[in-house]
Every structure is written in structure tokens, then in C-alpha cells.
Computed example of a mutant assay.
Amino acid sequence: MTDSHASEPVKPIDLRKLPPPEPMLVIMDAIADPVPACGYWAFLLPRFPQPLVSMLADRGLDYRVEPEENYDGVLMRIAPEFPEED
């Protein structure tokens, strides 16, 4: 029997309705905490957060952003590192 809970995704924090700069402030506050058990933080955003990219790089964090079909906006995942994708 395998432990399927170890790779379960974290429920994203929905920041789509917050006015700027609140989403960025919430993200910066969240990434100050230890990394969740799944290995990344996840956020729903109304658009790609360009100003955040350099701040993440300065902290040694990687990110993935993808359109979210079930939501209006994008899903951003942030982690110390992501496994190499094939």
C-alpha cells in the first residue's frame, strides 16, 4: 500500500479578489513560514505576478505558474526547488 497523502497537492490560497499589493504581501508572509508537507505553497492569482518574481529569486525560491482551468486566473506554486520535469 502506498502513501498517497504524501504527494497530495495543497489547497491553494485564493488571492484573486484582493487589491494590489495585498496578494504580494500575503505571499511574502506565507513563504516566511516552513514549507508545507507537500513541498510547496500554492496561490490563486488573477494574473502572472511579475513584481514577485525577483523577490522569490532573491530568497532562493523557484516558482511555477499555470493557467487554472477551474478558476479565473492562474495557479502559482512556490518551492525551494521543484523536481526536474521530463
Rank of each mutant, 00 (worst) to 15 (best):
M28F: 05
V74D: 06
Y63R: 13
P21S: 01
A32S: 15
W41E: 09
A37T: 12
K17E: 01
V10A: 14
E22Q: 04
R16T: 15
Y63I: 02
P23M: 04
F82H: 10
Y40R: 14
D58I: 07
E68L: 14
G39A: 00
D86K: 14
A32G: 10
E69G: 03
P19L: 11
R16E: 07
E22C: 00
V10Y: 03
R64T: 00
F43W: 08
P36E: 06
Q50P: 01
H5D: 12
Y63Q: 14
L52Q: 06
E84C: 03
R59I: 08
P51C: 11
D3Q: 09
A42N: 00
A42F: 00
D33H: 14
R47D: 04
I27C: 10
S54T: 14
D58Q: 14
L52N: 08
I13G: 06
L25F: 03
R64Q: 07
P12Q: 09
I78L: 09
R64K: 03
V65G: 10
E22N: 01
L45W: 07
M1P: 11
P67M: 11
E85G: 03
V26E: 09
P9W: 05
F48D: 09
L44D: 06
P36R: 12
V35C: 14
G39E: 00
L18Y: 04
P21G: 01
L15W: 06
E69H: 01
E22I: 00
V53Q: 12
A30P: 02
D86W: 07
F43Q: 10
P20W: 05
L25Y: 02
E69W: 01
Y63L: 14
T2L: 05
P67D: 13
M55P: 03
V10T: 07
M76D: 07
E8D: 01
A37V: 12
V26Q: 10
P23K: 00
G73A: 03
M28Q: 12
D33W: 06
L15T: 03
A30Y: 06
P9K: 14
V53T: 13
A37M: 08
P51V: 12
A32Q: 13
E81C: 03
P34L: 04
D14S: 12
Y40M: 13
Y71A: 15
D33N: 15
P83W: 04
A30R: 15
E66H: 04
V10P: 00
G73M: 02
T2S: 01
F48G: 08
E81N: 03
L52F: 11
Y71N: 13
I31N: 07
E66P: 00
I78E: 05
E84R: 14
Q50G: 09
P83C: 05
N70S: 14
P12L: 11
G39K: 00
P12A: 14
W41V: 13
K11D: 11
P51A: 11
R77Q: 14
L18M: 02
P83L: 08
H5R: 15
M76H: 08
P19M: 06
E85M: 10
L44G: 05
R77H: 08
D29L: 09
L61K: 12
W41S: 13
A37N: 10
F43S: 13
P12R: 09
A32L: 08
R16Y: 09
D58P: 06
A37E: 11
E69P: 01
L44V: 03
S7L: 08
I31H: 07
E8S: 02
Y40G: 09
V35D: 05
L61G: 04
V26D: 04
Y63K: 12
L56W: 07
P23V: 04
D14N: 15
I27P: 11
